[in-house]
């Protein structure tokens, strides 16, 4: 749909659903659904509360640490699978299983193993995102034309130089795609995990809100998480676009 010459369908449909939500809320059609305007005003109150800020910081820090670990681990596994047939046959099956398994059910077990602290969040993120990063990295490495590494070798690259100056960059478009998918999975893992566990950090807030029928706060928190995930994934999407021009021109 075009308005004043601008293409605006995503915003428009979003506005539509928000309007619907507001109406449903005003008429009290479902008690778990308070009016959107109340949720928004609650959101602004919430982000100023000290307990929210503490919980958010804790979750955020654990999330970033977890992502850092899975990016390093995923790229490492992907390169190992891509450059050694043996590593591929040993790791490939497991990576594929973990990448497609329903991992949410494991989160309570993680909680038993790692307690209720940050460690559980970190392990959850790693568990949810590493495998897809590994698979995409592997696809990227496989996609590199053999003449790329021959070029590096013929100009005297050491193994390390070949990896850091040629192969890593050549696989970067796929690696970034993997990181973005991994990130989305990690957010899902955290949200599901925290809802299941609901004792750690933001999860505890979630539980408090829903137990006390504080649905304004509950939805406000959900929206914050969504905005957080969207911001992260579009930041990576932006990076992906920047490297895309060469993804298409690789020889």
């Amino acid at each position: 749909m075009r308005l004043f010459g601008f293409q605006i369908p995503p915003v428009f449909s979003l506005l539509f659903w928000i309007a619907l939500w507001e109406i449903a809320g005003q008429y009290e059609l479902a008690f778990i659904l308070p009016p959107f305007s109340d949720v928004v005003s609650e959101l602004f109150i919430l982000i100023q509360r000290a307990d929210f800020q503490d919980a958010a910081m804790l979750t955020f820090r654990a999330f970033v640490i977890g992502m850092a670990i899975s990016i390093v681990l995923g790229i490492f596994i992907g390169f190992a699978m891509g450059s050694s047939r043996m590593a591929n046959s040993v790791l490939g099956m497991w990576v594929n299983i973990f990448a497609s398994a329903p991992l949410s059910s494991l989160v309570p077990i993680l909680m038993l193993l790692f307690g209720l602290g940050q460690t559980t969040i970190i392990v959850t993120v790693v568990l949810f995102s590493t495998w897809i990063i590994a698979l995409d990295t592997y696809a990227g490495v496989n996609h590199i034309s053999p003449s790329m590494s021959e070029m590096g070798r013929s100009f005297g690259a050491t193994r390390r130089q070949l990896l850091t100056k040629v192969l890593f960059w050549a696989a970067l478009p796929e690696i970034l795609a993997g990181v973005r998918m991994g990130l989305i999975r990690a957010v899902k893992g955290i949200v599901i995990g925290q809802l299941l566990v609901s004792v750690v950090a933001l999860g505890r807030l979630f539980r408090t809100f829903s137990d006390n029928f504080q649905f304004e706060q509950f939805w406000a928190l959900t929206i914050i998480l969504f905005i957080f995930a969207l911001t992260f994934s579009s930041a990576i999407g932006w990076l992906e676009n920047k490297v895309e021009y060469y993804a298409n021109t690789r020889g």
Binding site: S145, S147, M148, E150, Y245, T249, R250, G251
Partner: peptide, 9 residues
Amino acid sequence: FQDFALLPW
């Protein structure tokens, strides 16, 4: 190289 093998980045 026949396919140039330039670094696209």
